[in-house]
Each structure stands twice: as structure tokens, then as C-alpha cells.
Design a protein around this nucleic acid. Structure first.
Lengths: 284, 284
DNA sequence: AGCATTTTTTGTCCTAGACAAAATAAATTT
DNA sequence: AAATTTATTTTGTCTAGGACAAAAAATGCT
């Protein structure tokens, strides 16, 4: 039996949210210890983790949290089918995905090395690495990967691209493009792929990584004298403040700096501030 | 101005604790927005981060939190002097630190490459990389680095070690040591250094990275069949529950698995559960 | 269909008190 | 004097139910 702090830690759902779900939706239903504190069973924690996965897919708590086990199973299966429809997966990548999902890291690395050697960095990133990244995300969303498996895979993919980039070497001169994600956005792979393509075409980059406060991006852009700031927005980041953030950026950056945005999250954006440009990996 | 949730995230001090410090010690003293919610200034956050560092050194909240700026400075300086006595800084690393703090990434990389070639991976990690990591942390704590500079530096250091490890290659066979940090702990460099030393001595590793839920560590350890689980706790790791976490781990892991812990955060631990061992990088 | 406005949903924050685990101080025994 | 036990202080986590605004969905309007 686990205390609410433990549950928060293991599910990523805050105490406040756990308590308010209990009040509003009747789940979870922890027992109480002699102190009167909530204690959660392992089963409830597991169900909370499943619920979290569904929420990350964009489902709403009111439609998911109150569900009985059966309905929850059904919903998870439906989503699984939709995300992993057979047509989506290129057979050429099936082996890579299999290696990824069974956790055979050395074999995965070897296969990636071969693909890289065969295709060259640019084609490799566009045709092999990016689809693989997407497949991992879908497997994770479908619950076919444990959290730790996804951790390991992402780490390996990051590492692989880092190594590939180091072979190309850092282009000389001052950086031209600054890369980063805004706070709340933890997905680094999009940035890395963009960086690899830029470096491969001889343009020096400055990668700030994920979760960078807006004013730090401004400061870094000014100090480094880049001509472009590239931001990545993943699909699961649904913040409606993207537009506000972009407007603030446009206002605070030097007028000569142009802004690229990319990632699955930009598709839902409609009107964009001027000097903001949607970029895909292909167009780099 | 920042909300309490942001402060919790940026300082690692929980909301509850922030509120109760305010009540008990008269610090922090956030203002209120029109909703009546606490809003913290950047200065207060910075002071909270300094306080946290002092607490991580083993000082008690009651002796530190209520202090005025002056007394806090004095205390910090005393401790700083103890930590960074002049003999501690190897002149050979001064140049690396300078390159790091002025943001000249290519030059830093070159210098690191030279040191690596000269010393070999193990000595390099122990004698050059680890002190450099520490120095970056000190610079950051002393406010001599912007956030984005620290982001970039850390990224570069991670990348450099990843590349160095990839040259050694992944040892064959099943992984022996699983590495990771518990939720809330974002510092990956300690893990990476340990991994580099392990790989260099021919032991296969499985690095889960940072912020891994405890039960995922258990699952991963069971599935991968490792003989050792290595955890890193940085000095600024605020969770006071390290011992609880360790006890839970001991209980849930197979009895044959032994646990290594390392990092600046383990110093304040006194009694440890059996089968938990404090490891330094040197002893790997 | 595209856009603006209303309604519902949802997570974060509030207060102030209770309590046990950890750390320290004090008392006792070896 | 050192070690062990007991008392006291310190400290962080948890409780309750209400309030509120941001986000999402639903509705109305070109």
C-alpha cells in the first residue's frame, strides 16, 4: 500500500489532482491508514498509469477516469488499433522497431550504423531515423512499451545522433541557428534531427535543448548573434499559449532574426505572427 | 514573478514546504496576485536555491531559512571556502573552466579531446571530466553562468562522454549494472561518468537516464537480469525520502541484486539499509 | 467551412491544523 | 568517559473543501 506522495512520484499525477479526481469521478478509491491518510493499492496505481497514457493521447479525464476496468480495456484497445494501423509502418523499418521494442540495444545500434553508412546522414535522418522516432512514440502511446523501455530507447537514439554528428564535426564560424524548446516541452529528438541536418549542410548550430525559458532564448540569441531561432513543438504539447509565446518572441528578438517552428504540435496553429515560418525536416 | 508551482519545479522545494517555511521562518515572503496567490520574485527564487544548497550540505532549515541576506552570504562563503579550498582547483583545469564559462564550445571540445587522448578514458573521467563537471556546478551556483550557458555546457559535456563511450563500444553480453536516477533528479552527468568507467572496464550497462519511477527501476532490473542497480543523487536533490526509496528498492528488488548509490546527495545519509553500498567514481 | 461567444471541464492554489519521523539534547547505564 | 536509552524539538507531509481561471467543447453566427 502506497502513500499519496509515492503515487504522485510513480504516476506523475499531482496530489491535488489525485484528490480532486477522487472527489469528482469516484476514482481512485484509496483506503485510509490509522492516521486517516490515503493509501493506494498497487492495482490502483497501475490503473492510474494506464489512465495517464490515455490522457497523454488527448482524451479527457471526465471520459476516462470514471471508467470501469472493462470499458478502460476497450478504450485502450481502440486507441491502440487506431494508432498502429498496419499501413502506417514501413516494412523496411519493422526490424528496427522490433529491435527497439525487444530492447536489444547493440543490435539496434548496428542496424542504425548500417543504415547510416548506406544512406548518408541527411537521408538517414529523414527516411530512417524520423520514422523510427515516430514509431517509438506510437508504441509508447499504445502501451506496448514500458516506461523504462521508452527511456532507454530515447536515450539510445539521442546518443546515436550525437555520435553521428560528432563525426561530421562542428562547422567553423559563429552559430547561425539556435535550437530549443519552450518550457514544458521535453522532446529533444526533433531538435536533434534538425541539428544533424543543419550541421550536415555546413551550418553551425547552438542547441539549447529542451525546456528553455523564453527570456533565456532571447538572451542566448542576442549573445550568440544567430540569424535564426528554431523551436520544436511536439504533438502532445497542446498549450494554446504557443501563439502568445511566438508573439512575445517576435517582439523581443532583434528584428533581423527569423523564427522557424517545427514538430507535430505546429499543425494546429492557424494564424502565425509574421517572420515565423513553419519548417519541416525535409525543408532544411 | 512566478507561481508556487514554478518555484517548486525550479527549486525542488515542495509547495507544502514553501508555505510552511513562510509561516514558521518568515521566508520566503511572496507577494500576492489579484487572485490572492503567492507570486515569487526571481531574487527570492535565487535565494531559495542558495538555501537549498546549504541544506544539502547538511545544515538545518531553522538555522538557514530565516537568515538575512548578509548572514546568508557569510554562511555561504564559509562553506564555499571549505568546499573550494585553494588546493582543490587543479591549475590544469582552469583553462577548461575558462573555455566553458566563456562559451567557446569548439575550443572546449578540442581541449577535452586532447585530455582524453592523453589520459585515457578512465583517468580522463576521474581527473578531468569530474572536476570540470563540479566546476560548472559551482559556477552555476555562484550565479556566474546564465541558465542557457549552463544548458549548453551540460549538453556538450553529455555529448562528449557519449561519443567517447561509443568509441569504446558496448561490451558484449547482458548488462550487469543498471543506472538511473529517481524522479525529481535531473542530473545525468554522474550516471554518465559511472557508465563510462564501467564500459571502459568491460562491463555492460543499462542506463535508464534520469527521473525514473521507482517501480520502473524494479521492473527494468528484473527484466534485464542485472546484478547491480546504481543510483545517483546529486547534491541539489531535495527529496528527503532517499532512505525510504532505498528501503523500498531493497524490498522490491530480487535479493541477489545489490545497490550502489553515489553522488553528492548521499553524504548526508547515515544509516543505510543492508545491501546498499556507497560508491564513488574512483571505486568503480 | 471559418470565426466569435458562451458553457463546461479541469488543474492549481488557498487556509490552518494535525501528526509522525528524524534530529538533537538530555539522562541514564555500562 | 563512552555507549545506550529517553525526552524534546524540529521538520515535512498530509488532511479538508472551496475558489478560480485557463483550456476545451459546444453553441451561435456569418
Amino acid at each position: 500500500m502506497f502513500a499519496i506522495g509515492t503515487v504522485e512520484r510513480d504516476t506523475g499525477i499531482s496530489r491535488d489532482t489525485l484528490r480532486i479526481w477522487e472527489r469528482r469521478y469516484g476514482f481512485p478509491t484509496p483506503e485510509r491508514n490509522d492516521k486517516g491518510e490515503r493509501v493506494y493499492s498497487a492495482e490502483q496505481i497501475q490503473r492510474l498509469q494506464r489512465i495517464r497514457r490515455l490522457l497523454d493521447q488527448g482524451l479527457r479525464p471526465g471520459k476516462v477516469v470514471p471508467l470501469e476496468d472493462e470499458a478502460l480495456n476497450k478504450l485502450a484497445n481502440t486507441l491502440h488499433d487506431v494508432l498502429l494501423s498496419p499501413g502506417d509502418i514501413d516494412p523496411a523499418h519493422t526490424r528496427l522497431i522490433d529491435l527497439a521494442s525487444c530492447g536489444d540495444i547493440p543490435a539496434l545500434n548496428t542496424a542504425l550504423e548500417q543504415a547510416l553508412a548506406r544512406e548518408g546522414l541527411s537521408s538517414f535522418v529523414l527516411d530512417t531515423f524520423a520514422p523510427l522516432t515516430k514509431a517509438v512514440g506510437e508504441l509508447w502511446a499504445a502501451g506496448r512499451l514500458q516506461i523504462f523501455e521508452e527511456h532507454i530507447l530515447t536515450r539510445q537514439l539521442v546518443r546515436f545522433l550525437d555520435v553521428a554528428m560528432s563525426r561530421v564535426g562542428h562547422p567553423p564560424g559563429n552559430p547561425e541557428v539556435l535550437l530549443g524548446t519552450l518550457p514544458g516541452e521535453q522532446h529533444a529528438l526533433g531538435l536533434l534531427m534538425a541539428e544533424a541536418l543543419l550541421i550536415n549542410s555546413g551550418r553551425a548550430t547552438l542547441n539549447l535543448g529542451t525546456d528553455v525559458p523564453l527570456d533565456e532564448i532571447v538572451t542566448a540569441a542576442e549573445r550568440s548573434g544567430v540569424s535564426t531561432v528554431a523551436l520544436s513543438f511536439s504533438g502532445c504539447c497542446t498549450r494554446n499559449t504557443i501563439r502568445d509565446d511566438l508573439e512575445e518572441l517576435v517582439e523581443r528578438l532583434p528584428p533581423t532574426v527569423c523564427i522557424w517552428i517545427g514538430g507535430d504540435g505546429v499543425r494546429r496553429l492557424r494564424r502565425l505572427p509574421p517572420s515565423v515560418e513553419i519548417m519541416s525536416l525535409e525543408s532544411i
